[in-house]
Design a protein around this nucleic acid. Structure first.
Lengths: 337, 337
DNA sequence: AACATCGCTGGAAGCGCTTCCAGTTTACCT
DNA sequence: AGGTAAACTGGAAGCGCTTCCAGCGATGTT
């Protein structure tokens, strides 16, 4: 089956010959360049149609020094982490935005050392026109690699130790503040928080939002435990908080997974949610609807993140100077608070 | 910041010159081709090191007619569907396998007509060396597009109306049989099934497995309702089954999401699971552990699927003739049955 | 009628690499 | 020492496209 037509794709030379013009003329009509007469254009266009011509990507790339490909690099130690729906949503956003262009998406899971060196190589061999980076921890070597390659680069979320020139991030600070203020508005005062890893900017920003809201309201930040954005981490943190501050009446969890873990522990401990203790999460990527009770949470639009990153990268590649953006977050009310 | 070093990457010519040899000689050492003296190799290698030379991907691609890129195309009407953890797992598998090669991964969400035509174009312009296809429904236009392009192609899961020459699939039939047999072994006899869409091969295969197991055991397939692999679909199907066959004592759901929907309806209807009615799902991609009670389900290794597809494609590109594979599935016991 | 101006054209020189081929050197046999 | 085969070498021709440039005839200006 699948008779592999060995028939070669026609080349520009062949098209030009058939149209009775020079190769440069043919190239001009294909690229919609000026200086081509009506007659020439028509002839070339007919030849193209008749021969089913399509310009060879590689050849064009070599001549223009543009591959028409952008990379999305996801850096993390654990490949499993990629299974987080977060990334799928980013990809959906990126893809949607790319569809408006004629760029294609190269996906790099740069976890292992091998993956990282493959990426480095890709950048230095000019395999892509630009790159989007996600999930960088601390001082990820990727940042240096990318900087050294001198390629247009945009960051999704900010790395911890430096502020990239071009990035798009969710308003983590504002979202966390929103969540905390809501709990305060509910009349809760002994509000604790389970943070994300404090070695990440997200983790820190969301924690800061909590603190700021508390202090602004004249409350003292009641207690903090560090989580790691996972359900297990959330459960562990909740246990220790319940131990140290048994009279807590609300918890702001830095992610929905964290909140899910906390929820489980609370219920097991006989607390009723939200009556006894109110819980608010962060992310709203599906988990929030599936917990029991469903989570009140801070929604961030991850698809928008992907879309904005892409738009920004496209601008950059075109030689413009976009400015970084912070995407708004909003509170979504469900049953846990 | 990020001082974009405008310094051009050195070219092979420059390396050759510095090493005092011809460009062809230099090329030979880079490609580890035979017929190069020790002296030449050393000289070239030193030059490479000193200049930090890396061969330009595009130029090489043009000369060799190989891009070093393979595509993974996901076809579906709804972009949101990509958020299903299934795809993330495939990608993890694919990436892991690619890491052993020097191929890179191009991801195509070919949902819209625009996405599809972009993909067509990519294939015809020789933008990739091969392609992996997933989530094809019925007679997806993609199959024709791909066949016409005459590129190495492997399928993940079988499309409905034709058997591709190269594919890898999970043993859906066997898995469904396993699940049903287990329910039978439990002493249940009024076992119903909620299928996937019967317009897909997966849906059909899993349904067939159920029927076969029932008949082999001398039971009559008690009742069937068509679902669509979603939780909502599962819930709807469960409701109608409960109406028409209120005495059912077990259900085999063709996916975990389906099972989750069914579970909810059963509990709401006052049935206790598994005491009153036993439930088995299919997939085991996370949801199964998060339902209440946790689902007994048929596990398929989606990462392995990705890995095998990749291996197969790599073989194909190398000019070999791999043979298709069916990956085993296994029953995972939890609390719902 | 003479001149500058403009749009259009094809030739040619790349882009950076691989690979064929003929020529040269070296090594090996007898 | 002479002859042959093998190992090595660099020149040159691609891969398929873009783009600069000089040349061309057809307009527009005084």
């Amino acid at each position: 089956m699948a008779a592999q037509r060995p028939r070669r794709q026609p080349t520009l030379d062949e098209v030009a010959e058939r149209a009775g013009v020079s190769r440069s003329a043919a190239s001009r009509v294909i690229n919609k360049a000026p200086h081509v007469s009506r007659a020439t254009r028509d002839a070339v266009e007919r030849a193209i149609k008749e021969m089913g011509y399509l310009p060879n990507r590689t050849a064009r790339a070599l001549a223009t020094q543009q591959t028409g490909i952008v990379a999305l690099a996801v850096s993390h130690d654990d490949p499993e982490l990629f299974a987080d729906p977060f990334f799928a949503q980013v990809i959906v956003g990126v893809s949607a935005a790319l569809e408006e262009t004629d760029l294609h998406l190269l996906l790099c899971l740069a976890s292992s050392g091998r993956g990282r060196s493959r990426l480095t190589n890709l950048l230095h061999t000019r395999g892509v026109d630009g790159i989007m980076l996600m999930a960088l921890h601390g001082d990820d070597p990727l940042t240096h690699i990318v900087r050294r390659a001198g390629l247009p680069a945009v960051y999704g979320g900010r790395p911890l130790n430096f502020e990239p020139q071009w990035y798009v991030d969710s308003d983590n600070l504002g979202g966390a503040r929103l969540a905390t203020e809501y709990l305060i508005g509910l009349g809760r005062t002994r509000i604790v928080t389970i943070t994300g890893p404090m070695s990440s900017d997200v983790g820190r920003a969301r924690h800061r939002g909590y603190r700021e809201a508390m202090i602004m309201a004249g409350l003292i930040p009641y207690a903090t435990a560090e989580g790691d954005f996972t359900e297990a981490g959330g459960a562990a943190a909740m246990k220790s908080l319940l131990d140290s501050h048994p009279d807590l009446d609300a918890v702001f969890a830095a992610s929905d997974n964290t909140a899910a873990g906390a929820l489980r522990v609370l219920i097991d401990a006989g607390r009723s949610v939200p009556a006894n203790v109110a819980v608010v999460g962060f992310d709203d990527l599906g988990t929030a609807e599936r917990t029991d009770p469903p989570l009140t949470t801070v929604h961030q639009s991850v698809q928008a993140l992907g879309r904005e990153m892409t738009r920004m990268l496209v601008e950059l590649i075109a030689g413009h100077e976009p400015s970084s953006v912070i995407l708004p977050t909003k509170l979504v009310l469900r049953d846990s608070a």
